[in-house]
Each structure stands twice: as C-alpha cells, then as structure tokens.
C-alpha cells in the first residue's frame, strides 16, 4: 500500500476537511474522522484533481476507511 497515497489523503483531509493530521491512519474510518456520505463524495472530487483517479459512487459502497479508499485508488491505477 502506497505511503504516497496516504500522504495525499492526509494532505486532503487535513487541509480541506480540517481533520487533525495525527488522526489520519489507514485504519481510520471516515465516520470516525467526522466525514459523512456527502463529505466522502466531495473527497472523491478533490482526490480526482490530485491523482487523476475518480472513484465512482458504486465503488464507494464498501469503502469505510482511509485504507479501503487507498486500495481502491491503487486498484484503478493498476
């Protein structure tokens, strides 16, 4: 699992969503970080700008944690 991607998530979640950086680990669920379903969709839009990868609604269904999202992005990056 890429440390670069974790860094990207840390940057987005702390700068754009105001989540304390220390809380952002691969195991942290978005719910625990204070993000609701609207925030997660918004997150995918910012993520696309930073990485070029767009996670679609249906791909988010089983994404709960930062690690789940990173795995999806890696899968799509091939």
């Amino acid at each position: 699992m890429s440390d670069d991607l974790l860094g990207t998530f840390k940057a987005i979640l702390s700068e754009e969503f105001g989540v304390p950086e220390d809380d952002i680990t691969k195991d942290a669920t978005f719910e625990a970080l204070g993000l609701d379903s609207l925030d997660v969709v918004e997150l995918t839009l910012v993520l696309e700008e930073k990485t070029g990868v767009k996670l679609e609604d249906e791909e988010l269904e089983d994404v709960r944690s930062v690690g789940d999202a990173i795995a999806k992005v890696e899968e799509k990056q091939g």
Binding site: E15, E16, F17, G18, V19, G34, L38
Partner: peptide
C-alpha cells in the same frame, strides 16, 4: 467555525 464545518 473550524475548517470541517466552514467548508460545508
């Protein structure tokens, strides 16, 4: 208001 609230 905190970044988390203000952005919403």
């Amino acid at each position: 208001l905190g970044r988390g609230s203000s952005r919403r």
